[in-house]
Design a binder for these strands. Sequence first.
DNA 1: GTCCAGGTCGCGC
DNA 2: GCGCGACATGGA
Length: 288
Amino acid sequence: VRTVRSHGWLQLAPNHWVDDQDKLERVLRLSGGAVVLLRIQGRGSAERPAVDVGVHHEHPLTDQQRHEIRDTVSHMLRLDEDLSDFYRLCRESGYPWARLTAGMGRLLRSPTLFEDVVKTILTTNMQWSGTLRMVSGLVDHLGEPYPGDPERHAFPTPEAMAAAPAEMYSDTVRLGYRGPYIRELAERVTAGELDLESLSDRGLRTEMVRKRLLAIKGVGRYASANLLMLLGRYDAIPVDTEFRQFMTKRYFCGAYPSDREAVAVYDEWGRWKFLAYWFDLLQEPEET
DNA sequence: GTCCAGGTCGCGC
DNA sequence: GCGCGACATGGA
């Protein structure tokens, strides 16, 4: 479970991790409608990391398409995020994070916030296997196929998800009570009532972004904190069963702390609370 | 069968 | 603000 969690987003369709090659594959639908297959692989050293992106497409790519892919991959890997302040705090605190090296801490995210909101809602009150099943169902049934291998699909657009009949969610993908939440979200985004992607604006105040996220049906405290984390705002910790379990064991000798007490452990980390927790968790020896 | 998961909503207080 | 039951689904 811990291992799964540490690579969680990597496992959610249409992401596909090729284990023996340390490679991330993913079908991507470009804004113009072209559907391509990306193969993303790390390269270079720890000091000078680099990323190779292989693009598979029926036709030669235009410059605009190249730029879009470059921007998308950069967004997914958070190559533009500056974590140097967090690394500095780690050094200063003397925290025993021996394995922590520059470059860690860039948790994978999706090309769009829409996709991440959908996925986050599908993690709530659900075991990981259920999340995998539902996300795969959405991708397989509503995502556009990649022409080179029609078995593979992109993540569905809000339009495709809004246009799908309600039975698709209840009977085929079987989202349970989350179906109406997901459908309403897709409808509002499609109708232009809700501009999720504008929430990526770094100029917005975090409180403001949180408020907008909480206004989405199906997004509560945990989900909003998780989404803020995906947006590069680490001051809130998604308090879930995993967090509670870890904190109980790691800091409270098996006695259940309140959520408030547990979160307070990381108070000194200020706007980096989540990353502090994250590395704390990763440091913990793996179980089986 | 029963319990519950990487919670949230809609109540009533 | 806080406590509580309901909630679809599938896995343990």
